[in-house]
């Protein structure tokens, strides 16, 4: 399972490294969305960092939607699913691999946007640094959930529009937990309870994905 996961993750990341969709399309979109949140807050509040963590995660969710969709589009080229089935690749491994690749991509984008939050929304650099571990774990949970829901919509009619409808309600707890952990880091408050939620969400989504990813793919 681990070997297949590694293989799939390498394949996805290699495609990304060659196509540069993340670099030239998704990251600029995220940066623009972050700027727009500043404009939406207005000049009086844009530099006020109390909304920073929430807006960072909101932008991150929209960016993640694009990347989840992209991750599934890679699988939906004609023959890919059939060849995975005929090769007898363990679906749990495929799920883990895709999650891992998506996670790495989300981390890269997340770091850029975190820096953007510090620059544009004036979130304290020290607090953002403290929040970094929780951001990475939250994005990991987001990647696992996204791969699961992405597989549910893959290949269907209007997959790109269906994905947000399925994902966003499930992402809501991650958004809350991530935002609270980030805010707590900014105010040096207690973090651990949000850590627990994010880690549990990560374990739960990875567990459900390993168990049920195969069911979503077979017809």
């Amino acid at each position: 399972m681990i070997r297949i996961a590694w293989l799939v993750a390498k394949k996805d990341l290699r495609i990304e490294a060659r196509s540069r969709v993340l670099l030239w399309q998704v990251v600029p979109f995220g940066a623009m969305a972050l700027l727009l949140t500043g404009l939406a807050l207005g000049p009086a509040h844009a530099g006020n960092s109390s909304a920073g963590p929430g807006l960072f995660y909101l932008v991150m969710l929209f960016v993640a939607l694009l990347m989840i969709n992209r991750s599934q589009v890679l699988e939906s080229t004609p023959g890919t699913r059939a060849s995975i089935a005929t090769l007898g690749l363990d679906p749990a491994g495929v799920f883990l691999g895709k999650t891992l690749a998506l996670c790495v991509e989300l981390w890269v984008t997340g770091l850029v946007l975190l820096a953007g939050t510090v620059l544009v929304l004036h979130t304290a650099l020290h607090g953002a640094f403290l929040a970094l571990p929780s951001v990475l774990v939250t994005l990991g949970a987001l990647a696992a959930a996204g791969t699961l829901y992405g597989a549910m919509t893959a290949g269907g009619e209007g997959a790109a529009t269906l994905l947000p409808v399925l994902c966003l309600p499930a992402f809501a707890p991650l958004l809350i937990a991530g935002e609270r952990a980030f805010s707590a880091a900014l105010t040096h408050g207690g973090l651990w309870e949000w850590w627990v939620i994010v880690v549990v969400a990560l374990v739960a989504y990875v567990g459900v994905g390993i168990l049920l990813y195969g069911v979503l793919e077979e017809s």
């Binding site: 269906l162 409808v165 399925l166 499930a170 459900v208 069911v215 979503l216 017809s219």
Partner: peptide
């Protein structure tokens, strides 16, 4: 919203087996 998502998911898949399996997983996770 999750229940609405379930109905949207059902409409999106034409293959009956795939539709049944995917929506069942979605319902259980929800």
């Amino acid at each position: 919203v999750l229940a609405l998502g379930y109905l949207a998911l059902r409409r999106a898949n034409d293959d009956p087996t795939l539709r049944a399996k995917r929506s069942a997983v979605f319902a259980i996770v929800s």
